[in-house]
């Protein structure tokens, strides 16, 4: 319950934060702390120093950007749920966010914190993958843009370098006339996804013309299922097709098994949530 001793500094500006991170002394970034503090309490993380970025204004907030969205890394899940922009355009993100943790976690937890933590069963990575988001990273060394698909690299592993800070996530607009949805089956205790599917679709006369599909909770990271998404294009998403898409989505994926869901069950659930998410998205078109 009690972390090891560490030092704590509050960043006064973005520049200040990047300077601290450049120190290279094992500093961990904290915003809401809802991914990090549980690890600290069990002493699974033992950083020498915490850098609190919650007060840096330019890291928070949701704004319209190139007809899509720009979401600051320190934006809380609560702010996402309260955002009219998200509600009007990105149902997939609303679906997922309303199921993240609980009210208290959503009040304090930040999207950037969750993404940088890269829990393999977290909901948001799948959503950002399906939406084709890109992440702006910065360090004293410079800026770079990393696509969501390149960002998640394994269990608790991302493209972020030690001295880098996740600044914001840029989400492109949905295809015109497109719709989206997220469906997951949750582990009863933790609320994390046993299997979750994020879907963006576009239809023309009931036929799917575009599809993006990402899954989470199944393996060491959230992933895009591009081949499966292609199978859907050109179909009317009939039950047989959905079954094929669901099976294709996890083809070649090493599925995690645990006390809550053996791998065989998770594989099956993946197909179920893929089918249900596609149906839900199409119903919203």
């Amino acid at each position: 319950m009690i972390p090891v001793q560490f030092d704590y500094v509050r960043a006064t500006s973005l520049n200040d934060a990047l300077k601290t991170l450049a120190g290279g002394d094992g500093t961990k970034v904290i915003a809401g702390g809802h991914s990090l503090i549980p690890l600290l309490r069990f002493r699974l993380a033992q950083p020498a120093k915490l850098l609190d970025i919650a007060g840096i204004k330019e890291l928070s907030g949701i704004s319209e950007y190139k007809r899509g969205l720009r979401i600051g890394a320190a934006t809380t899940y609560r702010d996402i749920l309260d955002s009219a922009l998200v509600r009007d355009r990105y149902q997939v993100m609303m679906d997922a966010t309303s199921g993240i943790g609980d009210v208290q976690v959503r009040n304090r937890g930040t999207i950037g914190g969750g993404v940088a933590h890269a829990d393999p069963a977290a909901d948001m990575p799948g959503v950002l993958l399906a939406l084709g988001a890109s992440f702006n990273l910065r360090s004293k060394r410079g800026k770079r843009v990393v696509a969501a698909r390149d960002f998640f690299q394994g269990t608790f592993a991302t493209a972020l370098a030690e001295d880098e800070l996740l600044i914001d996530m840029v989400v492109p607009p949905l295809p015109r006339g497109g719709a989206s949805a997220y469906v997951s089956i949750e582990q009863a205790a933790s609320g994390y996804a046993l299997a979750g599917a994020a879907v963006v679709v576009k239809c023309s006369r009931k036929t799917v013309t575009e599809c993006s599909l990402a899954l989470t909770g199944l393996s060491d990271r959230a992933f895009l299922a591009e081949a499966a998404a292609k199978l859907l294009v050109g179909t009317k998403a009939d039950p047989d097709t959905l079954q094929r898409v669901g099976a294709a989505a996890v083809e070649g994926i090493e599925i995690t098994g645990d006390i809550h869901a053996p791998a065989e069950y998770r594989r099956h659930l993946a197909a179920v949530v893929v089918g249900r998410a596609i149906r839900a998205a199409i119903d919203r078109v």
Binding site: M1, Y8, R10, I30, G33, H34, I37, P38, R41, L50, D52, A54, V103, Q104, V105, N107, R108
Partner: peptide, 11 residues
């Protein structure tokens, strides 16, 4: 609503 066990006093 905030979980005070998941918030550092300094925060």
């Amino acid at each position: 609503a905030t979980k005070s066990c998941t918030t550092l006093a300094v925060q």
